[in-house]
Design a protein around this nucleic acid. Sequence first.
DNA 1: TTGTACGCGTTATCAG
DNA 2: CTGATAACGCGTACAA
Lengths: 350, 350
Amino acid sequence: MTANKPPQSGAFGWLTITDIAKLADVSVSTVSRALADNPLISEKTRKRVQEIARDNGFSINPIASSLRSRQSRTISVVISLVHEKDQHLYDPFWMTMLAHLAETLTDAGYEMLLSKLSVHQDDWLDRIRRSQRPEGMILIGQSREHPAIEQAARAGYKLLVWGAKLDSQSYPTIGTDNVGGGAVAARHLIELGYRRIAFLGDHTLPEIGQRYDGYRRALAEADIPLDPALVVPSGFDPGHALEAANALIAGGPPFDAIMAASDMIAISAIRALNSVGRSVPDDVAVVGFDDIQLAAFNNPPLTTIRQDIAEGARLLVENIARIIAGEKVASIEMPGVLIERQSTRPKRQG
Amino acid sequence: MTANKPPQSGAFGWLTITDIAKLADVSVSTVSRALADNPLISEKTRKRVQEIARDNGFSINPIASSLRSRQSRTISVVISLVHEKDQHLYDPFWMTMLAHLAETLTDAGYEMLLSKLSVHQDDWLDRIRRSQRPEGMILIGQSREHPAIEQAARAGYKLLVWGAKLDSQSYPTIGTDNVGGGAVAARHLIELGYRRIAFLGDHTLPEIGQRYDGYRRALAEADIPLDPALVVPSGFDPGHALEAANALIAGGPPFDAIMAASDMIAISAIRALNSVGRSVPDDVAVVGFDDIQLAAFNNPPLTTIRQDIAEGARLLVENIARIIAGEKVASIEMPGVLIERQSTRPKRQG
DNA sequence: TTGTACGCGTTATCAG
DNA sequence: CTGATAACGCGTACAA
């Protein structure tokens, strides 16, 4: 039974490299090299072996390959929105990021292992790394995990984070210049004549905190005092955002503009305003953050700060590859660009 | 160099089962069994070995384990929205499904390998299966890939599909009773007194086609003639939906209600109506499909057909496990439940 | 109850 | 340029 094995000889039910070797009448090493396009093998043999493999529907078993070569070509993508109460990924921003990552990683020849962190567990990072499968990790959103990430980075994990660049962090991040973006948003409102500008968002989260810093900076530049009553915490989901907006409307001091920490919050705020008869932008100007697809199709179309997700995904993949290769990479902050639409307009006089 | 290897002896840089064996002064097989909680090993030894492993931060190398045991505990999740022009996952419905799957698979001890199909490739299924890594595949959305899936199923792929149950398909599906759900939606409008009901959606897609069938059935039951001019194709994204709704408003015959193929389409339609001064539900009643989170927070809150995503994800995971185990599983259709909110109300007389 | 020895399918080393 | 052979780390008959 050693010669002429049937086509499906591998224990998994399919062909192994050994079968191809027999079919091609060469050694397994030659097959291995030929399939890897190793120039050591003559072009003629290489093509012949590749053809035989293709004709028989053979592919390298990546598990065996990984074991021997120590390369899994797999990246773990972790989405850590543990601060969210309802624990769902609902925000279109993350969804789009995920889609772009799936595409970009695939194009780069990686497999994407998706994990979702729904509650904080002290050992989550360790658990993923110990699986020893992924060559690197991309974390989407620092959430409140900065300390854990910091510790992991110190321990030598190969990781890259989408999020805020924090002081003295020992891990690299890719993200938008949140302080700058936040300042641009607030300045835009100030330039249009607004002075009672509310901030809606949870500034205890790193990225939102930076957008809030930008907001404060812009106010300070214009000598507008910061009114703490205009700063209302809000989660990302429509429910929280609606609540926050209603709280602002009902209990807060007068305001003529809103700077929202995300587009979803902005959209929810507009709904809340409409439902009490205040129109946007005539009565209140609203600016969002993200520029999700929905923003352009909102009623009114949303003025917002664009985060370039596609470019972000590209940078994440490119740089995690570098990190895996052992290079040190620096954090990158992409500009947050103001997209003017119809949810803001110059303040009416009087 | 055989005895007393340093703690980090594995070639990956970490401990191997052999190291633990030495530390515990037992054989590798004992370690292997102890870590697998194999009752063959005495409780005492088992605990001791487990403790040593834990203290040293050791975990089984899943790659080697997979190679030997032929179990990767990995499921490939493929999202095949190849019909979408902009090729992004933006619809919150898919996103939520993905989130639930990530959670449910993790809880069930599986890893989730995410692939996104952005364009049709003849060999996409084969490419994934040949990777030999996943034990099974969950396909989210049939899109237009029914023929390819059919062929793959015949070839013995272990797969499970979220989508429409089609006649004479040789693969199992989990999904909502789209015909029933569509009928419920249309009947709801009819019962409220509407007779000029438009349908917004691409009924050449399997799931939408079935919702459309339900719509037609309900009309027929009520002896309302089907007006083809009221049936307007629309993609899922806000852009397409807005276009479709505007086309209906501008060029179509009079209508007093809209049945949308998805919530996002419904929400876009409401915006389109509002922007030409027609109010919902006073002038036009609108019912959606999905019950995404946004639906409840829309203005007005959206009447819709709920698809139970959490239960769907649970069923997908439970049944893919069965399929992997070699069982035959039957397709499941979950009921589509009408959720009445404020986008529909009895038609005004006159 | 524990240990020995082999093999999973591939790649790397070394020899020719 | 090609081939024989030894790992990679683990699971499991089989033996003790």
